[in-house]
């Protein structure tokens, strides 16, 4: 029987919750539990981890017990996936390069990617919009509001 996208989604998410809980339990067991009359650092996390593990198990059982019928809608369409991946990777790269490129330059690069690739603006327009954004952000946040943002090798 072909399982629907919705059912598969339920199962995967339930398993992830259960795994997260088990990982938390393993980690919490290494903390001092104390005693019920003088609870230690591990008391609360361990209780929570056990509770979440039970909940996760219940979710798993429920997800595998019900065979939800429904249209096999894709989790995410290919074009949307490409857009989302670009956004996430661009932002992670921004976080990684902010220190070495400096705020203004890194921001300019990030904005070019977002405007050009994700929103498919033309090159000239994307570069112009990005430059404007970078300058504006620099003026507003760094100069005006005084947010500490890293300067690059050229001082901006």
């Amino acid at each position: 029987m072909p399982e629907s996208g919705a059912a598969r989604r339920e199962r995967w998410s339930a398993l992830v919750v259960l795994l997260f809980a088990l990982a938390a339990l393993v980690e919490a067991r290494r903390l001092p539990f104390g005693s019920v009359s003088a609870p230690g650092a591990g008391f609360f996390p361990l209780t929570l981890g056990a509770g979440l593990a039970l909940l996760g198990a219940a979710l798993v059982v429920r997800a595998f017990a019900t065979t939800a019928a429904g249209a096999a809608a894709p989790f995410v369409t290919p074009s949307a996936r490409a857009r989302l991946m670009t956004v996430m990777i661009a932002m992670l790269a921004y976080a990684a390069l902010l220190g070495s490129l400096g705020f203004a330059l890194a921001t300019f690069a990030l904005m070019v990617v977002l405007f050009r690739v994700v929103e498919s603006h033309g090159w000239a327009r994307a570069v112009l919009e990005s430059a404007a954004t970078a300058v504006l952000a620099h003026v507003v946040f760094k100069a005006w509001l005084g947010v500490r943002l890293p300067p690059g090798p050229w001082g901006f």
Binding site: V17, F20, F44, L48, G49, L52, L55, G56, L59
Partner: peptide
């Protein structure tokens, strides 16, 4: 489950 995860 989300409430427990949040507290954790």
């Amino acid at each position: 489950a989300m409430a427990f995860a949040g507290m954790l």
